[in-house]
Design a binder for these strands. Sequence first.
DNA 1: ATGAAAGCGCTAACAG
DNA 2: CTGTTAGCGCTTTCAT
Lengths: 353, 353
Amino acid sequence: MPVTIRDVARRAGVSPITVSRAFSGTHPVAEETRRRVLQAAEELGYVPNLVARGMVHKRVPMIGVVVPELANPFFVPIIDAVQAVARERNHMVVISQSQSDPDMERASINQFRQMRMAGALITPASMAPEHLRSLRDHDMPIVVVARCWDDGDCVTVDDVAGGRLVAEHLLRLGHRRIGCVAHGGPGNVAVQARMKGFRSALEAGGCSLPSEWVIRTQTVRLADAIQAAEAFLELSERPTAVFVTADRLAIGFIHRLRARGVRVPEDVAVVGYDDIRYAEFLEVPLTTVALPKYEMGKRAAEILFERISEEGDGKLYRVLLEPKLIVRASCGAQPANRQGHPFAFESVSENPS
Amino acid sequence: MPVTIRDVARRAGVSPITVSRAFSGTHPVAEETRRRVLQAAEELGYVPNLVARGMVHKRVPMIGVVVPELANPFFVPIIDAVQAVARERNHMVVISQSQSDPDMERASINQFRQMRMAGALITPASMAPEHLRSLRDHDMPIVVVARCWDDGDCVTVDDVAGGRLVAEHLLRLGHRRIGCVAHGGPGNVAVQARMKGFRSALEAGGCSLPSEWVIRTQTVRLADAIQAAEAFLELSERPTAVFVTADRLAIGFIHRLRARGVRVPEDVAVVGYDDIRYAEFLEVPLTTVALPKYEMGKRAAEILFERISEEGDGKLYRVLLEPKLIVRASCGAQPANRQGHPFAFESVSENPS
DNA sequence: ATGAAAGCGCTAACAG
DNA sequence: CTGTTAGCGCTTTCAT
């Protein structure tokens, strides 16, 4: 059953190396010879063995991707882009979910290394220096996506600016009592940056962000969103507007608020972050900060392949893309999308990010 | 830089084969020896080479998965389950998106074969026999997920029953003029089955499904959903209820309907299929048919690994799981979830499928 | 419990 | 343009 290059060679009446060349196209092969080889391979049902080739090249045509979770639609356009770039380069993509667990990240990267993959992309849960260092390796290039990284290549968005956009918008709408639901620990530099921009813009506008109004969650999952809503409901004095640092979190947050009789945006304005696919179709269409997700994945993958082929001049990439505020109903700047006003939102977007 | 088993062996003062055994644990190794080996490996920064091992075993510890698109949240729990099972067996998961294109499916399966992967899972866009035959192979087991397959293992849901559930529910609510939006071509056996159950239950209830009221779409994407809504709006006589064969399609369909002033469920009741994650949080909470997605992925992966380890008795698996109707607001059986009635929906589910 | 020899399928390097 | 030689890193016999 295992048809090898030798079998094909024998049948085509050439040497194994010629078969190899006919397939990989690295060396010229006479058209006639090549035809014979291809036909012999066809007849024998030969399938090239990438493992053997990988053995020789000390590298396999695959790249690894580690994301916190596929359940967050935020990562889907990123992965789409990575796969598109990888396909152009004839590389397969191995996807691993870390569940935001640094140990799982490390384990995945380790597997990638054992498999001698060409490179890896990662959105790390934590940017703790010792964790990242344990990921670094000179044999396998790594590019960080959607997070900043000082010691290596990264492609991300200006989260400080993103946070600022939210604060400025809320201030512009007249809010003075503004709170926030923030996910992830101190290792989540993206959220830290959003908060920083948010807070400083608030202060520039003469507002503060009292710590009672900063609700923390571990993850971005529904259970945490609900807890955040409950925490909000228990506040003795509630803010009139809330910045939720991820759309996925905002969905559950708003849902629970409404279930408890708090109207959005009338009682509380909510602004999310990420502009995930479903933000537009929710019970309350979500005002949020859009990130160029597809673009991020694309740039990151391109940089990774540059490292893989050792083309670049070796200087670190630190790509910072621009976020953009998308105004929908949840912040109250537009009338709520109730059934009485069905014409409020005609636009429907289908951009890839 | 390439530290091999020989380097470790030299440093530990043993033979290469002993190092191999210390790592793979296939043969007994004296505790003392093993410690020395592990330490030497640690000091040298040795990383086992799975490619070389794969070369010997003629198989690499990876399985491939082909799904139409990750953008459809339907596939996420399936993938989660597959990854969980694969992790237990120390296998990596390569994910490929076919965009419902049979050629891409074939190409992906081919790559998997070239990479000598242990097996593959696939949700094929088309069950055209010649297409499937081209995917079959005796060297690499394949299990089909979420579709029926007569000539091989498959794990799916009773879509005929699913379609019936929808029809019966709509009839029970008093609808007599019922239409449908169906995606995919004739090769999509899942949708065909849903339609079959739907239609026969309708007829059993004394209703018919006139062909003017069957709107077809190519894919499940937003653009198609919008086209479907426009087609619906142009109907000279409209049904009072519509079965949309996928939630992802229903989202855009409802959105466009509402944007055009058609109320859901008051003017048209809509029932979806899949119960994707966001169905509950939409502008109109979606009545839909829930599928045991995580379970499907789990069973399929388990069957695949049984094939891989050649444990089973070789008889074909044909697992058929049960669908379940989830009633929310879009069918009108519950009051619409407007802001005036915020307590209508307290329940929030966090099941893995 | 450990080792020696042989080879998995392919391709780089060097001929011719 | 084509062939020969050697070896990628590991694990399987088969010995000891």
